[in-house]
Design a protein around this nucleic acid. Structure first.
Lengths: 209, 209, 209, 209
DNA sequence: CATGAATGAGAATTCATTCAT
DNA sequence: CATGAATGAATTCTCATTCAT
């Protein structure tokens, strides 16, 4: 009744395919990646691959979900540790643990953009994208709202609008970073300026970093 | 022998293909558009189409160039008329004639993003994207610099950094607008907030809209 | 070592697979049915299924054999009970117990036709089909011959030819019934006409039902 | 504007593909035939084949239509020439020009049966099959009706029912002929018996062979 | 015996691009 | 110049069957 191959093995295999696929997607991008690429990278047969993921879209979404889980855990952890201030918490969520603008970017980000842009006319994909957007939005908006209630942030602007702007900016950066070489995007400088923007919008005084 | 067909005719034919193709790219996006789509929309034969544009990429770039020309002319014209202030000029370039944030977006924008994102590993395309980025950057940077020299803008930030951020923000908006329904992006609200910040960063007084 | 699992159990398992498979073949037809369909319907694992039947063909033939056994038993039983007349016996074998044309048809018939038609170029399948044909033919032919010897049937036509015609007609009906909706085939009317045909061929007088 | 390749050439090419495909379908049957088979037999490239027929189903239906046209013309021609009697006309339509049961059968018949049987759960195919059935039915039914009105045929049975039985019988013969070797089907003997009965049912006199 | 993961041959279909007319 | 027939490389996906556990 129970599978002869340990469930652990299955999970590992799935994970290894996912990992290999992630690498492939990073290298070739979503559109250019073929199932053959993944097969070769993961060392799986055609049928084996399709056993785990019924098509490229499914495969990519699985990767997205994985990422989501990681992010979620991370931000949750952050939330708890960062008692100092809502501002600091926000910075942590945006820039990671050290709350400081840096040069690192999710290497899969370009493919993600591709995935959603090329699929913008597909109902299913679109809905999926919207759900993800809402989730991200909520995280930022909630913190901002709490900060406003706690009196740390000013209420001049809707928490929602600011949250949206955070996403917009991050998306914009990801986009430019995907297309342009680092020396043209100047991730760090732009991020710093953006932090100032947020500081202005949330706190008002010019106490930038 | 002089050409059989008047050069004028050729130009017109080319323009009509370009126009039809633009519509097709807007509707289907870059990747999903096939040469057949364009042929049908433009009422050209396969061979005819290839006579003018040697492949899909070439065709799309031609459309991009056309757009560039229009924009260039427009901004040049704007430049001349807008004697009032550099601020007003900047707004005009960003938001068009009326210098006011609105809901309109270049309908071809999503396809442009597609074009550059999916082609990010292609040397040729990448170089082309960079050139375009530089051109856009220069326009914003120049105005900001001039505004700074004229004393209208403060020099707290590098003109260049602000110019980049403008592009990043616009790209981010375009991206989200491509993927999400308008009620989720809130183009106008986001734009207004951004303008407010720009005003703060360049001029300083908190004279929000 | 004696077998671990009782032979009874094995038989039952086999029978349950066969039953489930029959349902699947009826629903999807022979070609469209996949082993997966059968597995799911029978609640057997892939390996389990192959333990009992080494491939789809084997599985289907097993079903055919089962059917054959049933039919054989049935007709044998009929043979014994029906002492009234050879005519009545013939009707019973063709139309079942009540010896009357009705609307019922073997639901598996369409798949059987598929099986033999699509496999007509396969030596093995062809031979199998021929054997079955011969068996069916013999049953009809024997009764007719006996009826002729008993003087009940006239000898104008070869028993063999009439027997063949019975099969041809039944096959034709099964075929049309498989393809067309009942209201187009008119099973009953056609059957009645056919009975008349037989009556004509065997007895001659127009004493139709 | 007009094609550079003569329309004649196009038709010929299409016809040649159709002819080659017919041969392939006769040899392998509908299901087993692949587009590759057709390509090779017709000496067309993959793309070329798909230019003319968008898939296997389309291709096969085109062949069916061709056949229909031929048959239609033939029967129409027959209709006109055969002034002798309705009976003779009927025989001509069933058995061809010479109005005599013989051993010839449409070599494509098995594939046709396959096509409709394996596609019996497909809405489109089913509808197509029904349409064809109706057409065939009408031809037979009309003649019988006319014969009845002319007093040549008796009205004991509905023209419609007899027409259906003719089709059923022919289908049954085609089926058995597809599966069994000629010496088992005995096309000729069966046909003769059937004709005899038809004669009895329509005319009544027992003028058997 | 049972299990179901893994295999891989094979089929269908699409589309950019070429080239004879 | 214009035309559209022809090409064929590429890709996706399916499924019967095998075999290690």
């Amino acid at each position: 009744m129970s599978p002869r191959v340990s469930e652990e093995h299955l999970k590992q295999r799935r994970a290894s395919i996912l990992k290999a696929a992630t690498g492939v997607f990073i290298e070739h991008g979503y559109e250019k990646t073929t199932m053959k690429h993944v097969m070769d990278a993961a060392g799986v047969s055609r049928g084996g691959l399709y056993q785990y993921f019924s098509n490229k879209e499914d495969l990519f979404e699985a990767i997205l979900e994985e990422g989501l889980n990681e992010e979620a855990e991370q931000s949750l952890a952050s939330l708890k540790k960062s008692s100092t201030s809502y501002w600091h918490l926000l910075m942590q969520i945006i820039f990671g643990e050290d709350a400081t603008p840096d040069t690192n970017m999710d290497p899969l980000a370009p493919s993600k953009l591709e995935f959603f842009i090329t699929g913008r006319n597909d109902e299913r994909r679109r809905a999926y994208g919207e759900r993800r957007y809402e989730m991200g939005l909520k995280i930022y908006a909630d913190i901002i709202k709490e900060g406003q209630q706690a009196g740390e942030f000013r209420t001049t602007h809707h928490a929602d609008t600011i949250a949206r702007s955070i996403i917009t900016f991050i998306d914009g950066l990801a986009l430019d970073h995907a297309i342009l070489p680092e020396e043209k995007v100047r991730l760090k400088e732009q991020s710093e300026l953006f932090v100032q923007y947020l500081n202005y919008a949330l706190i008002g005084a010019d106490s930038s970093s």
